[in-house]
């Protein structure tokens, strides 16, 4: 291989390697800057979809960041959002349609729909969350007072 050929080879190698290195540095950066779908690192509000999709006298457990919430649409169509962690031993509470109360399956603690502890071992009420309806959509936010 002549001197010229050798130089060309090195130049080619330099270009390929340079381009490759550039791409392997650039690719992660571009990917990094692309926003991820799964939202934000911390949560201050939660969209729950259309109010009209929520059946009356129904309930569900949703996630508010790291906290489980119980969302209840009572028989009058009023929405309640409360912490779903029982204040006794942190079990997940449920809504009893028969008793019209929130109950905890672990030790049969009872709360009313405002979260007040009524009977059984729970020492404190369940924390309430704010329910806002914007354009027919349910939005849950933390209450200001802690």
């Amino acid at each position: 291989m002549g001197n010229n050929g050798r130089r060309k080879f090195i130049t080619a190698l330099l270009s390929i390697g340079g381009l490759g290195t550039f791409i392997s540095a650039f690719y992660p950066v571009v990917k990094y800057m692309t926003p991820v779908k799964s939202g934000k690192p911390s949560v201050s509000s939660l969209k729950l979809g259309k109010l009209s999709d929520f059946a009356k006298n129904a309930w569900e457990i949703v996630r508010f960041g790291r906290k489980p919430l119980i969302i209840i649409n009572d028989e009058n169509g009023k929405l309640h959002a409360l912490s779903a962690e029982c204040t006794h031993l942190d079990c997940i509470v449920q809504y009893s349609k028969e008793e019209k109360m929130i109950i905890c399956a672990c030790h049969n603690g009872h709360y009313d729909l405002n979260g007040k502890n009524i009977s059984g071992p729970p020492p404190r009420p369940l924390k309430q969350y704010k329910v806002n309806i914007q354009n027919g959509e349910i939005i849950i936010t933390k209450k200001e007072d802690g």
Binding site: P28, V29, K31, V36, K40, S42
Partner: peptide, 21 residues
């Protein structure tokens, strides 16, 4: 206080190549 740790965790396990950066 309530977002530093969470956002680093988010970078590390949610953002593409966040762990690498």
């Amino acid at each position: 206080e309530n977002s530093s740790y969470e956002s680093v965790r988010f970078i590390v396990n949610k953002v593409n190549f966040g762990w690498l950066i």
